[in-house]
Amino acid sequence: MRLMPRRVKFRKSHRGRIKGKATRGNTLAMGEYGLQSLESGWVSAEELEAGRVASSHFLGKSGRLFIRVFPHKSVTAKPIETRMGKGKGEPAYWAAVIKPGTILYELTGVPEDMAKQTFNRIAHKLSVKVRMVSRSA
């Protein structure tokens, strides 16, 4: 199921600016291996879900995947062929704001080569460049 906040204070948010690198959520917390972002950007709930599905198809019942980010930000869009003005568009999707260094996913209970293959599959679903990190490295 796509991730989305249950309750929000406001439906629409400002775009904001992504400055600097991640100073929180940039270390492994639960798993043996992690997928770390190398870029900043918005990762949509759809992308996160696609990554989760890709990993569960590959891993089956083995291992456990943790999603370390949550799409808190609503992103609005205007309908196509609409003239400018007339206010802000309607919320189109939810996204997680990602800074370089953020750990997006963590994995445990699988050998390293399997983790590598899983993260490779997930990376194809994401709109930011990522790299695999492990506790031993």
Binding site: R2, R7, V8, K9, F10, K61, S62
Partner: peptide, 25 residues
């Protein structure tokens, strides 16, 4: 831990997911 099995979700849940979150204002 017991292995977690993926359960096919009914279409109703998908519809619920498409809803917007509750706004506390």
């Amino acid at each position: 831990r017991k292995p977690v099995e993926e359960v096919a979700k009914p279409a109703v849940e998908e519809e619920e997911a498409a809803k917007e979150p509750e706004v506390i204002t």
